[in-house]
Design a protein around this nucleic acid. Structure first.
Lengths: 284, 284
DNA sequence: ACAATTAAAGAAAACTATTTTCAAGTTAAA
DNA sequence: TTTAACTTGAAAATAGTTTTCTTTAATTGT
């Protein structure tokens, strides 16, 4: 099924009218593309206002944004393979095929739901940050480490601790000129929530990177970024979700570098060259 | 090229301003999706009215209809593009498009060059290993950490140090029943080569994960695994190469789990549940 | 059980986006 | 040179969307 439809179907807590809308959309997805909000309102017997709100709860900018993303999502689904779960005793070629399509799907779904406005805001806020604190546990901690390494290479002051005490500690000393980024697929990791709350309390700008659905972290954060949300049961090993998170990190980082090209590219090259040089000095 | 863009490009008889619009659209197709008719009018230096007429000329109901059809057309046509480099002042949508296609390309290229015989050997040797030592510096270190976390979850004894002294230290105590995995895109990272040489000296089986070409590491290793080799100049930030490495790690890991399903899946679930449980015990 | 608070939803107002109309300028043909 | 057809943009008209305001329903605490 289409990524957006999956998200809508799996959303548990919806109000009665929202459920009516969700139901209509899942059953008439193709038709939505040709419908204005008023038509959809008439068809579902719900007010246009409620439809706008419905789109907002799913993190779309509004009805037109929702309609556009849904239709390109549906178009894409004719070509892309759907997520596949890995089961017992799969033959190796089946496994490889499944992982390949899950990863590719994860990247393209994540790309489809990007809100360019939020993305652009995130990039500029990171560029202007005095210090960037990264929070993430377990797999999301790996993603945080990855971002950390990249930021270090361009000379940005930042921190990324996998130890939850150190996360809080680093959050506790942030100021208003700093930015905190919280990474968590579910958006419900307690340690990460604590750290972000702490950072917010210190007055700094907060960014979340979670799966595409409402979550505690996305509610706290000033700027919300999302990765595609996998179908239930697809989470074994967090593989696809982590690929999607790294994909977003790459987009953020590249956006930053591209914006300050002449400042950052020399930094990047410098850091590669220095690593090489100091190795040589030790006799290689 | 996309169907709609082809039609627009091939249309011969267009008025001056229509030609301006056609030209802009073919060069900024992806951006149209996020633009209102007024924005497009401003960008092209043409009135909104003319754009509406332009859409009519091509038999669309109007601008919104055109925009929608173009964007789903583009979504559909999003098949494997070639690698793209990121240059100065790229528009955000170009950046996103480039990263998406680089990552997807990286995953599918890596999949295409898999040697199933080597892969299967690697999986079985890892399964039978008494201890698994992972070596990798910088970005490859992140990949090693990722594999480490996965192996810990299924209860496999393993190590992954990012400190090069510790890598050598851990290699120095390996035995014949152990396995060493060296990760390096270039296959020429001195610290990683040292660690793998040390492991080999201790008599344990060695696996390398490098780019697809001859390298020092791949010559040392007993089993060689490869990721796709990127075009020169594509390495800024190691983004696509790291995605490809993680892709291979996921294949290895899933292969292992699938082979010993009944032993490892409960371990995986146990590790998730215990994390949750011990959080709760602390009062959440 | 009842008041107080919170959440849900629609009507209408405000706002935004798109299309049409109209008038002016331009080109091509008679 | 005049006329007709075409192109274009400004502004009016229309259509579409979102916000605000208000009512109603549901939930919570006393």
């Amino acid at each position: 099924m289409s990524h957006i439809l999956t998200i809508i179907t799996e959303q548990k807590k919806l109000s009665p009218k929202e459920r009516v809308i969700a139901h209509y959309i899942t059953n008439n997805a193709q038709r939505i593309a040709h419908m204005s909000i008023v038509e959809l309102a008439r068809e579902t017997g719900v007010s246009a206002a409620t439809i706008t709100r419905f789109c907002r709860t799913f993190h779309f900018a509004g009805y037109p944004d929702f309609r556009m993303k849904l239709s390109s999502d549906l178009a894409q689904n004719h070509t892309a393979k759907s997520y596949q779960d890995i089961v017992e005793g799969n033959r190796l070629d089946k496994i490889v095929e499944a992982i390949e399509s899950n990863h590719i799907r994860s990247i393209s779904d994540t790309t489809r739901i990007i809100d360019f406005h939020q993305l652009s805001k995130a990039i500029h806020i990171l560029l202007d940050a005095n210090h960037i604190a990264l929070f993430g546990m377990a797999t999301s901690g790996i993603v945080a480490q990855d971002f950390f390494q990249k930021l270090v290479r361009i000379g940005k002051s930042c921190s990324a601790y996998s130890d939850s005490h150190m996360q809080i500690t680093s959050a506790a000393v942030l100021s208003e000129q700093d930015v905190a980024v919280a990474i968590s697929y579910s958006g419900e990791t307690p340690e990460t929530i604590d750290a972000l709350n702490c950072a917010k309390e210190r007055g700094c700008t907060t960014i979340s990177l979670t799966k595409f659905s409402s979550s505690t972290l996305s509610r706290i954060a000033d700027i919300t970024l999302f990765t595609s949300s996998l179908e239930e049961g697809m989470r074994r090993g967090d593989m696809a979700s982590r690929i999607a998170q790294l994909h977003m990190i790459d987009i953020l980082f590249t956006g930053m570098v591209s914006e300050r090209f002449s400042e950052y590219v020399p930094n990047l090259e410098q850091s590669y060259n220095m690593v090489k040089k100091y190795r040589k000095d030790k006799g290689r």
